[in-house]
């Protein structure tokens, strides 16, 4: 069987690779030197790793969209998007999600922060999969001259890109949902569309207390460092880390008790009040229908493409 092989001469790939490295280096250095954030972020963000979800800025029609319908539409769209195989349709779904993020006027920094881990994952896959994926008889190969003895799997490369695009779409949709409604409203909407109440309450409290827990752990870690603790591959280190985790657990357990007491003192008897009442208007339903139509449209288009391809194959 003839194998598809693409040979890329060094005078083509080398300048591209060098340019990319230089651009990357310059970008990194400039960012390091500038390190600027918009004013509103400066005042409130302490932990860059956990994006803020409690504060909602903007008042576009997406912000006003009923969170229940928004959530259901987003989940359905994500589901249909990840089931697509066609590269062009996948890109189209990503564009649709990005388009709505732009319509919602989401700050680019919050999109970037959420996409950062996806880019890291995709980059790792793009680098590793073409090298490590097994080469089958029908695999298409790419050879970078003069490394003819180490061909790369082109199909694996496409697979890695596909994973990256799908993940990007889902993250964009998640960002759109989380950053256009208060976190509590989104979780309550989750409860309304069928997620058990206890799970929803846990999600609410988790978001609030993850920061407190991180802060507590950081303070303990600092105290350990200030008394000379350095993690080594030894039993002593394991013992100390065990004590650290145990202490953190005990403190968290005590805190849970106190939080329960505080909640009960303010009238909590098993359900959270609806701080943001839901109201589904005609335009909310229409927007939901539009998203559903787009989701089904993308999926149907791919289905018909496959049918046409099969028919053409038979002919």
């Amino acid at each position: 069987m003839d194998r598809a092989i693409m040979l890329i001469p060094y005078y083509l790939w080398l300048p591209v690779a060098v340019t990319l490295v230089v651009i990357g280096f310059v970008f990194y250095m400039t960012k390091k030197c500038r390190k600027t954030l918009p004013e509103y972020y400066k005042a409130e963000a302490f932990d860059v790793e956990i994006p803020s979800m409690g504060i909602i800025r903007g008042n576009t029609f997406i912000h006003q969209w009923d969170p229940r319908i928004k959530l259901a539409s987003g989940i359905l769209f994500s589901f249909f998007s990840v089931s697509l195989k066609s590269f062009s349709l996948l890109l189209l779904s990503t564009m649709w999600a990005l388009f709505f993020c732009l319509l919602a006027k989401l700050p680019s920094i919050s999109i970037k922060r959420r996409l950062r881990p996806i880019f890291a994952l995709t980059t790792a896959l793009v680098v590793l999969l073409p090298i490590t994926a097994p080469i089958r008889p029908d695999s298409r190969l790419v050879i970078f001259e003069p490394f003819a003895s180490s061909p790369l799997n082109y199909d694996a490369f496409l697979g890695a890109i596909t994973i990256g695009i799908k993940a990007t779409t889902v993250v964009l949709i998640t960002t759109l949902i989380l950053e256009t409604s208060p976190y509590t409203a989104t979780i309550m909407a989750l409860n309304k569309i069928g997620v058990p109440g206890s799970l929803a309450h846990m999600l609410l409290l988790t978001y609030r207390y993850i920061f407190v827990l991180i802060d507590e752990a950081k303070r303990m870690q600092r105290a350990m460092k200030l008394r000379g603790f350095e993690a080594k591959a030894s039993l002593e280190t394991l013992r100390i880390i065990g004590s650290f985790i145990g202490t953190l657990f005990v403190r968290s357990f005590e805190r849970i008790q106190r939080i329960t007491e505080a909640m009960e003192m303010r009238g909590y008897r098993g359900h959270f009040p609806e701080v943001y009442p839901f109201e589904a208007r005609t335009k909310d339903w229409m927007l939901g229908m539009l998203w559903l139509a787009i989701s089904v449209g993308l999926y149907t288009t791919e289905y018909f493409h496959q049918v046409i391809d099969q028919i053409e194959g038979l002919q």
Partner: peptide, 12 residues
């Protein structure tokens, strides 16, 4: 409560 973090259990 003594520790106000116990009492502020909502996101905002």
């Amino acid at each position: 409560f003594q520790d106000c973090d116990d009492q502020l259990f909502c996101p905002t």
